[in-house]
Design a protein around this nucleic acid. Structure first.
Lengths: 294, 294
DNA sequence: TCAAAATGATGCATTGAGGGTATCAGGTCA
DNA sequence: TGACCTGATACCCTCAATGCATCATTTTGA
């Protein structure tokens, strides 16, 4: 097999078409250069150069091999730089898990800020619910999640990225929608309610249960995704409590009204990651999160 | 700078995560392998491996550099093969000059046969008149031409690829077209004739002059391209003599009739190339031409 | 708790690859 | 023909890579 030194030597000779000049360029003398080229030709089993009384010229194989050598040497020269960039986290990929609901408000702004701070970092988006995100963090298939509490897991670090309130999605024809006033929680008791599933959307389920007295006979349907509840409300199947950011969705048939006296930090969204991750780009992004607000 | 040997050594260690096993794989002993990796790390200024009491693991820089090394080594390994392929002519580019008229019949078939015999050879097409082709051959901007005689030039080799007859392009409303019979040469003397330019299309000019007595007052227009003459005939500007293959053009307003007693090898088309060319793919194609007929 | 095993690092002697100087061989040019 | 140019060869030297023997540290298991 040939060496990078031989490749560099060949490039010099092929460009100078003169062993002496090439040797100067390589800061060596002509005889060892001649031998290197001979050895290279022997190891390849190809004649690369035609020796003329006045300089040399390239054979077809030489022309072809010159192109290969240039590529090879260029790549060898930038390999350490690229490794350093990746190791420093300036260049890399962060696989980000997010819930559909979280995307409405923070995702765009988050991606913008990452791109601005670290143009070399690519964010790979993976939509999944909070529970899946924690599994994926552990198995290493994502680097960071945008997760709803709770996420008490060994080695998981986190940073709160968003707090918001809950609002009420009301079918547009519903009297409460027509009234257009903030809705006191107690007024919801008598209404048909769309509820979060206990298993799949535990966080929102428990939030709603803590806010209003949910009577089973008043629960028309159960779903796990915010978007689904809004769609069902739009279709007239009942009222639902959704995060404020879902109010940005413009879905015909549904009106969003504030929930009276609801604290503004009711719903939390946290960035989560494994402190043990070896992905430097992840740690850059995690560090960024502490400095910025979304 | 690091060497390919070090890159291979690092790949082995990174894959085995064990110096001893990696050394076995590289057919060497463990101590020099350790030292090679140390030297590599030193020359890069990066820690690539974390040494544990039980084997090693990769740092982020190591992960990144591993990818670079794999690429680098793969490229180094296939460089000789690719050079050999290009040198053998199995892979390469042949720049082919052709005249618009020659394209009508042989070009498609030629390209098909080349593709079949040498799938790795790409033909780059450059349309130009015969005289330009010879210039381009000499200057090295094409490798082969499809040329009309004469091409007596030092070092130019050739191979006849097509002989054909001349036919007469007659405006469809012309009495001779209506008659629809082969036309004797002497009958053309009294007609308006479209003539090839003496400078640009010397070959066809001389051919026509040799066949019929062209009286200057009967020459309505002069052009250098076969297609132009056919178009002018279609527009009713006179009769023209064109190669048989031009009869395949379906242009409204023109009828093609045989020229009575015209020999079938009147018009020749030759492939031409420089015997001194260093393009192996060209010589493959040139060799192919002697074996096939188009 | 202690000996054995595992694993990477280090010391040392040997070999060989790569470089330098001097010179040769073949060709060009005045 | 003689001075030159240019790549190849002969010969020597240095140093880097290898292998062997051994060390240091940690884990394992009785």
């Amino acid at each position: 097999m040939f060496t990078l030194t031989q490749a560099r030597a060949f490039i010099a000779v092929a460009e100078e078409l003169h062993f002496g000049h090439a040797a100067d360029r390589l800061h060596m003398t002509q005889p060892p250069l001649s031998r290197q080229i001979q050895k290279l030709e022997k190891s390849l089993g190809l004649k690369l150069l035609l020796r003329h009384p006045r300089g040399v010229s390239l054979t077809a194989a030489g022309e072809a091999f010159l192109l290969e050598c240039r590529q090879l040497v260029a790549q060898a020269e930038q390999a350490p730089r690229r490794a350093r960039l990746i190791a420093s986290g300036q260049v890399g990929v962060v696989r980000l898990g997010y819930t559909a609901a979280s995307a409405y408000r923070v995702l765009g702004s988050l991606l913008t800020q990452i791109k601005e701070a670290f143009p070399g970092i690519t964010v790979e988006l993976h939509e999944m619910v909070s529970a899946r995100q924690l599994e994926s963090l552990r198995s290493g298939s994502i680097d960071m999640g945008l997760t709803r509490p709770p996420f008490h897991l060994e080695g998981v670090e986190s940073n709160m990225v968003l707090t918001e309130s809950l609002i009420v999605a009301v079918p547009s024809k519903h009297p409460l929608a027509v009234r257009g006033q903030p809705i006191p929680p107690e007024e919801l008791q008598g209404e048909q309610i769309l509820m979060y599933s206990h298993g799949q959307a535990r966080y929102f389920h428990d939030l709603v249960v803590g806010l209003i007295d949910v009577r089973p006979e008043k629960v028309s349907h159960t779903a796990s995704q915010v978007l689904t509840l809004v769609a069902l409300s739009a279709a007239g199947h009942g009222l639902s409590l959704v995060p404020e950011s879902a109010g940005q969705l413009s879905i015909p048939g549904v009106t969003f009204l504030p929930l009276r006296n609801a604290p503004s930090d009711l719903v939390q969204l946290h960035a989560t990651w494994l402190s043990s991750s070896t992905n430097p780009a992840l740690h850059k992004v995690a560090g960024l999160l502490q400095e910025i607000s979304l």
